[in-house]
Design a protein around this nucleic acid. Sequence first.
DNA 1: TATTTGTCGATTGTCAGACAAGACATGATG
DNA 2: CATCATGTCTTGTCTGACAATCGACAAATA
Lengths: 235, 235
Amino acid sequence: MANAGPVRSVKKVSAEVQAADVLRESIVSGRLPPGMKLTEIKLSEQLEVSRATVRTALHQMAQEGLIVQVPYTGWTVMTLTSRDAWELYTLRSSLEALAARLVVERASRSTAESSMVKERLTKSLKALSAACVGGRKAEIAEADFALHKAIIALSGHRRLAEQYLKVEQQIRIYIASSDSLVPHPEQIVAQHQPLVDAIVRGDARMAAELSVTHNTEQGEILVGYLREQEARESA
Amino acid sequence: MANAGPVRSVKKVSAEVQAADVLRESIVSGRLPPGMKLTEIKLSEQLEVSRATVRTALHQMAQEGLIVQVPYTGWTVMTLTSRDAWELYTLRSSLEALAARLVVERASRSTAESSMVKERLTKSLKALSAACVGGRKAEIAEADFALHKAIIALSGHRRLAEQYLKVEQQIRIYIASSDSLVPHPEQIVAQHQPLVDAIVRGDARMAAELSVTHNTEQGEILVGYLREQEARESA
DNA sequence: TATTTGTCGATTGTCAGACAAGACATGATG
DNA sequence: CATCATGTCTTGTCTGACAATCGACAAATA
């Protein structure tokens, strides 16, 4: 994620998917800001694909919660309120707690699985720690996402991963809009270490609980920040 | 749900949505069985809409997890394995537990909210009870879904409701394929009563726990049934 | 003035038809 | 038997067109 490869090479992907990828990246990176209006024709010109292709890509993005469509009127980049933030963090919290439990269960099945889980999680945690030392917000946020995503991936639950991805992408919209939302580097490792420990230790209950509390805390910070901002704007 | 209004009247819906609705209904009702192959052209003739319109409807159904697409090859109605069942029930379990907690929290905010929650849930439970007396499997399953969905709706969490709907629809594919999966009528009320009680009583922890156990039990029955069936088929 | 009505431009919704591209089955060939 | 050409089916994508709807502004009206 940090160092984009020079060429995508071999893997041929359909124009649909390419268009969707470009759009998604533009949105989660903040290049297309919330509220930005998108029109099919302009996009088809910019992306050099037909309107039909743009359309399917737009529909997919809408499905992913990154844009909204108003019939016969247009598409706009999703604008998220404090309530949306609440929804996203409560949901994320639940999904991660489930994932944490599943990872523990999986690790308890064999020593091979167990050591694999341990290895991946400690690796992600180390990467996060390193990013915190570096101090660059974007990298920290990325490493943070990566750790959480590692837990999800280790759960081996396809639908869970899918739904989680959707939540994550929407959360990225906030991060793109203000990296003051990234917690202080000193706290981050301290926040994640216990969770990883609990999973590695095989304490499912604790792991789930830590997932919930961690996300809830993060969520409350974000919700609070947005509430303030909304109050300021409406004044 | 029971008595459909005489005429849909005013509300005009787009052909896209109509096509999607027809398809969805055909699948969850079992009229289009799992594994059934769908081709865009045939569907466009049957539904009397253009291929483009069918296409967007198909994409949406794929998104909802009801059909799968193999590039350049075709669309088929989703076939679900025992592993899929496991995924669906673990996910459902988590989502419902979250919803239950949120409903309790909401009910604790005002007596008006509280009595509304109580009213809706007891109403749904009574309907379920009545359906059990009736004894018709399809109606029982429907009332069961309705109760669960009522809890979700009462949580007031849009994204949660969306994701839950997706899970529910996929579960319906199983139910459509064999109504032997509907639990025995005598047990059903006994299974749901404690959950409703816990919510009404305001016991969030218990409500969440009951959601999990209830779903897990249901899920294990289904997974077991499917495992047997799969073993029989592979033999 | 305030309110309703009509008109117009912009944008999506839907359509038809065409061709390219990939997947799959079949049969020919070594 | 393995491998490779071949043909067919279906989706992927494009072009261009027209209808339906929305939003805003102007005009008519009370």
